[in-house]
Write a protein that binds this DNA or RNA. Structure first.
Length: 831
RNA sequence: GCCCUUGUGGCGGAAUCGGUAGACGCGUUGGACUUAAAAUCCAAUCGGGGUCAACCCUCGGUGCCAGUUCAAGUCUGGCCAAGGGCACCA
């Protein structure tokens, strides 16, 4: 065996060998139980960054550990390869985005292989290839036929820099998720997926996801935003044209209905013109024009002073028989509820602010009996008892919600209503590099989906990428022109492509049957492999990708394509990779290039280090010294083997008799196996796993050192071999190349990665002696050595016989003695 | 404003059930080896005090304030701070 550790040479050799042997092929048919480990697939941006390295290493170690434990493990990889960066790069070069994407995929594939990841590359999936997006289009058509894909004119989010619309989920603080540009509202006719049909199931089924963190689940629950309330319809008493009209409002506070003093409709409210009197018309028009000019950020800012103008008309409150005025104000949102709000300034802070500014009357209807408030300085929003509310006076407001809504139901002017904040998913994009929406417009037949046998609708190649201000796809002289799938007449194709999040909403299903040319996947195979047992990725997808994927899975279940409700059984959201306290990013200039680490230290060091310092869910602070430390540790392990090479055998026997000389190391190994297995099984605590590698290594060194220059007899060699081979097997999921190399050096015929996981003996996985802690009144006063098997009585006697304890308890009353088995004796004394 | 997460040495972080706080590592300091350096190895490393050193003893210490308990990083109540999410959503 070589004296030095040369990772670059070792790693390259094994990577080649694994590839030749097709070492990570996953059969669909196996007697073993299945395990599906998945990382969120990357966008092929050019090069791997440390976040990728962390993500894929975590999943790879899980996959290898589960394989060693006897599972048939599916661990695939693919590319989320449609999207704007490729198109922008193409526009800069005047070339096709496909070439740029292919180059990046080739380079990043090379990097993934250098990291030693155990992917079954035969299942590789690339979303921008026709054999994949054919099925994205096919799924679109299935959703369309079910009424879950539809086109409508709506106010949508428009990003001028990206030249396209965005989904609500892609607008972060009023800005584009990708380029940070402020988003504008536009009225456009666009394609949507009806995710709102699934709002209740998406919310309710969060309860099924025991393997997800609460943070992600609450983020999704907040985004879905369920609220229970009521719709009340208020008749208009003085409509200018004499028409019989009513204004419906949605409220979560039906209990405050007796306190209404005015009503607000959004500036975009559909009936607003009919509700405005001639004398108020100009002011209202001006106000609406101003509202249109405002950006979303200005409009939605909560600390802006509220403004509004009266419409001049009035509604009747059927509960009180009184009338109240109608206003328009931009704090009412047209997209939520009915676009109109009943205002109760005494019990809603926003209404209160508005009422103060415009001197609206205040009417208290909820009171805390112990501490009544007149609501002249702030709204009372806590619970209380109803006042000034006719027959409901004295009722608790929580009960009054139901009772008052019931009265409206009985009177025919209201109903119970559950409202969600979630909006439908806007999936059209006015861009080239995406899956074309497979729809045709025919003058006679209208909107017609493309025939399934004509899929895929291929992206045209005859386009001009140098155009500005419009989608390159519109420059194709051939693409738009087609024939109607129904009548055969001349027709036009849809020119929008799909949001890339559509492609990534089902890729994890395709891995189950990646090369199926007849279907997106066979039902038997998805039902066999799914749900994903462990999904690993960044928290930034808590809402976007994870919500969309859950929706897709549910919709596909309803389409009969698969049989489960949730795609991802367990979710690990890994923390960010930081350097010097902030996230690694090109703009901050604090990135570390994985290639450099591979070159200088090797992939095993990179893998070991990225797992070593923090638990996976927490942020990880990169330090060059830490990398160095991991590299030194691997050298130390290497020396341990090479220095003792002549004493090692793979034919060690586990059934040797335990003697006083050797039992401590054997016990240490069993404890390490147990501890490491538990740490991986329990939330993948790789940082403590790695500290246990070090402890075991230190223990073996100490054991060898204690032997000094003594000759090793057969039993010594047996024990040392057992310890060292256990160590490299335990390390194998992390240091995949080094363990394989040492295994081979020791005469291993097969790959160490085909070996079963180490077993431990519960009786050996504990020290032969325990340290008994003796406390007096809860403070540690002495530590004694005791036999592992000592009874509580024996421990108590031992403690009381300690000289030190005798001194401390002398002349005092022993009130109580508490014995914790195998651990501790606490003597409680008085005086 | 609401919701979620997290607060432990100089740093990253350990600590099944409430039972030795600070595992393991980084850093620092001292030493060995060496002509020297690198590498490697050994040792020390939470703070205050007991007149120095070793040893030992003692007090304090896990964001803050209370509480429960023989015993609290861990449980309960009330705060504070940081990070993240949502937000004129009626």
């Amino acid at each position: 065996m070589k004296q030095g550790y040369f990772p670059q040479e070792i790693e390259k050799r094994w990577q080649t060998k694994w590839e030749e042997n097709n070492a990570f092929f996953t059969p669909d048919d196996s007697d073993k139980p299945k395990y599906y480990a998945l990382s969120m697939f990357p966008y092929p941006s050019g090069k791997l960054h440390m976040g990728h390295v962390r993500n894929y290493t975590i999943t790879d170690v899980i996959a290898r550990f589960k394989k060693a434990q006897g599972y048939n493990v599916l661990h695939p990889m693919g590319w989320d390869s449609f999207g704007l960066p490729a198109e922008n790069a193409a526009m800069q070069r005047g070339a096709n985005p496909e070439a740029w994407t292919d180059e990046n995929i080739a380079y990043m594939t090379k990097q993934l292989k250098m990291l030693g990841l155990s992917y079954d590359w035969k299942r590789e999936v690339t979303t921008c290839k026709p054999d994949y997006y054919k099925w994205t289009q096919w799924l679109f058509i299935q959703l369309y036929k079910k009424g879950l894909a539809y086109k409508k004119e709506a106010a949508v989010n428009w990003c001028e820099t990206c030249g396209t619309v965005l989904a609500n989920e892609q607008v972060i603080d009023g800005k584009c998720w990708r380029c940070d540009n402020v988003v504008e509202k536009k009225y456009l006719s666009q394609w949507f997926f009806k995710i709102t049909d699934y709002a209740e199931r998406l919310l309710k089924d969060l309860d099924l996801l025991d393997g997800w963190g609460d943070n992600v689940k609450t983020m999704q629950a907040n985004w879905i935003g369920k609220s229970e309330g009521a719709i009340f319809r208020f008749p208009v008493v003085d409509a200018p044209n004499g028409e019989k009209m009513e204004v419906p409002v949605y409220t979560t506070r039906p209990d405050t209905v007796y306190g209404i003093t005015y009503l607000v409709v959004a500036p975009e409210y559909k009936d607003i013109e009919k509700l405005t009197t001639a004398e108020n018309k100009d002011a209202v028009e001006e106000y609406r024009a101003n509202a249109r000019k405002m950006t979303e950020i200005e409009r939605l800012s909560t600390d802006r002073v509220k403004t509004g103008v009266p419409l001049g008309t009035h509604c009747l409150n059927p509960f009180t028989g009184e009338t109240f005025p109608l206003w328009t104000a931009d704090y009412a949102l047209v997209e939520y509820g009915t676009g109109a709000v009943m205002a109760v300034p005494t019990h809603d802070t926003r209404d209160f602010d508005f009422a103060k500014k415009y001197n609206m009357p205040l009417k208290v209807v909820i009171e805390n009996p112990e501490n009544p408030s007149d609501c002249s300085t702030s709204a009372y929003v806590e619970e209380g008892v109803l006042v000034n509310s006719n027959e409901f006076n004295g009722m608790k407001n929580t009960e009054a919600k139901k009772a008052i809504t019931q009265k409206a139901v009985d009177g025919g002017f209201g109903e119970f209503k559950t409202q969600y904040r979630l909006r439908d998913w806007l999936i059209s994009r006015q861009r080239y590099w995406g899956a074309p929406i497979p729809v045709v417009y025919c003058d006679k037949c209208g909107i017609v989906p493309e025939k399934e046998e004509n899929l895929p609708v291929l992206l045209p190649k005859d386009v001009d990428f140098s155009v500005v201000g419009k989608s390159p796809i519109t420059t194709s002289p051939t693409f738009a022109e087609t024939t109607c799938p129904i009548c055969g007449a001349k027709a036009r194709r849809e020119l929008d492509t799909m949001d890339t999040f559509v492609c990534s909403s089902w890729y994890y299903l395709r891995f189950a049957d990646a090369n199926n040319a007849e279907l997106p996947f066979a039902k038997t195979l998805v039902d066999k492999w799914l749900p994903v047992d462990q999904y690993v990725g960044g928290i930034e997808h808590a809402i976007l990708h994870l919500l969309y994927s859950r929706f897709f899975t549910k919709a596909m279940k309803d389409l009969g394509l698969l049989s489960f409700d949730e795609p991802f059984k367990n979710l690990l959201t890994q923390g960010m990779v930081l350097k010097d306290g902030s996230k690694m990013s090109k703009s901050k200039g604090n990135t570390v290039d994985p290639d450099e680490i591979f070159e200088n230290y090797g992939a095993d060091t990179a893998r070991l280090f990225i797992l070593s310092d923090s638990p996976p869910a927490r942020d990880f602070d990169w330090s060059d010294a830490g990398v160095e430390g991991c590299y030194k540790f691997l050298n130390r392990v290497w020396r341990l083997v090479s220095d003792n090479f002549d004493k090692l055998t793979r034919d060690y026997k586990l059934s040797f008799p335990l003697t006083r000389e050797n039992d401590d190391l054997v016990r240490t190994v069993h404890m390490a196996i147990k501890g490491i297995t538990n740490d991986i099984s329990n939330d993948f605590q790789f940082n403590t796993v790695i500290s246990k590698y070090r402890e075991l290594t230190n223990a073996i060194y100490d054991w060898v050192g204690a032997r000094g220059k003594l000759e090793f007899n057969e039993e010594d060699k047996n024990v040392l071999s057992f310890a060292i081979i256990s160590l490299i097997k335990l390390m194998a999921p992390v240091t995949v190349h080094m363990s394989e190399e040492i295994w081979a050096e020791l005469g291993g015929k097969t790959s160490i990665h085909e070996e079963p996981w180490c077993d431990w003996d519960e009786n050996l996985a504990k020290a032969s002696k325990i340290t008994l802690v003796v406390q007096v009144n809860g403070k540690v006063k002495d530590k004694l050595e005791a036999d592992e098997g000592a009874s509580n009585d024996e421990l108590q006697t031992l403690a009381l016989e300690s000289e030190r304890i005798k001194e401390l308890t002398e002349g005092k009353d022993i009130v109580k003695i508490i014995v914790v088995p195998k651990k501790l004796v606490n003597i409680v004394v008085k005086g």
